[in-house]
């Protein structure tokens, strides 16, 4: 039996009376590499934040390994959407990764030598050990994204949640990043959300489509009708690495 890491039951989220997520049912298992695609504003980031316990569902239940999400933060690694911090922010790559140990260290205390060792290991794992003393803003978009993945890994999560991890990266770097995730999926469940269907569908094992409602059958097949319903327009789709057009063209 595969271990169920995350379970959402009939989850709905409203902001100011607007329904952002509606009746979401989703189970993520320990070996899943799930890509969630959907249009901008479709609720992708909200779904991740709901799993993390940062957004409270207005109805339904979220559990992470049987616990409410805010009790299970240490089991989850989060890579937020690329944010535009100041390129001169006075902070090294290593200091960024150390932040990931916060949940284990806690209020008032300092990061220990052990935390630092774990941070160096995480940097090595994403291939960024040599850049440890570089200022974070001086790195390329792809390198920064690897640093942020290391920051999520350093707490040894059982599930990794990534929000648009390839949005700020050029195509050759994207392939490298997906290969890194393919390595990591042997050790943890991975959920990544993206609006870029083609890139996601080559690497992930399962695909769901989200536009307020979630369309998901636990595999990589999505019916054209569902995609069209989610995106409300025709969509190009690549399935099983074989590119083919499944829907009619935009006119």
């Amino acid at each position: 039996m595969l271990k169920e890491i995350v379970r959402l039951e009939d989850v709905s989220v409203r902001y100011d009376g607007i329904v952002v997520l509606e009746d979401i049912n989703l189970s993520v298992y320990e070996d899943d590499f799930l890509g969630i695609i959907g249009p901008n504003g479709g609720g992708k980031t909200t779904l991740l934040k709901t799993i993390l316990g940062l957004v409270k569902p207005s109805q339904g239940r979220v559990s992470v390994l049987g616990n409410p999400p805010n009790k299970a933060r240490r089991l989850m690694g989060y890579v937020p959407q690329y944010n535009l911090f100041d390129r001169d922010f006075p902070l090294s790559a290593l200091e960024v990764v150390l932040m990931g140990r916060y949940g284990q260290v806690g209020l008032f205390k300092r990061y220990s030598r052990e935390d630092k060792k774990l941070a160096l290991n995480a940097l090595a794992e994403v291939g960024m050990l040599e850049l440890k003393h570089r200022q974070i803003g001086s790195l390329s978009g792809g390198e920064q994204q690897r640093i942020f993945i290391a920051r999520a890994l350093v707490a040894h999560p059982q599930i990794l949640l990534l929000d648009e991890p390839t949005a700020s990266i050029d195509t050759p770097m994207q392939a490298g990043l997906y290969e890194l995730l393919s390595e990591l999926k042997r050790r943890m469940a991975i959920v990544l959300v993206s609006h870029d269907i083609s890139a996601v569908s080559i690497y992930v094992d399962k695909i769901a489509c989200l536009n307020r409602r979630l369309f998901y059958h636990g595999d990589k097949e999505l019916e054209a009708r569902e995609l069209e319903e989610a995106y409300q327009c025709p969509v190009d789709m690549i399935a099983h690495g074989v590119p083919h057009r499944v829907l009619r063209e935009h006119r």
Partner: peptide, 17 residues
């Protein structure tokens, strides 16, 4: 630690509690 996370990336800070 807290002020550093606050200044750099609040969203991540929230996610680690």
């Amino acid at each position: 630690k807290e002020f550093l996370i606050l200044s750099f990336d609040e969203e991540f800070g929230e996610s680690v509690g």
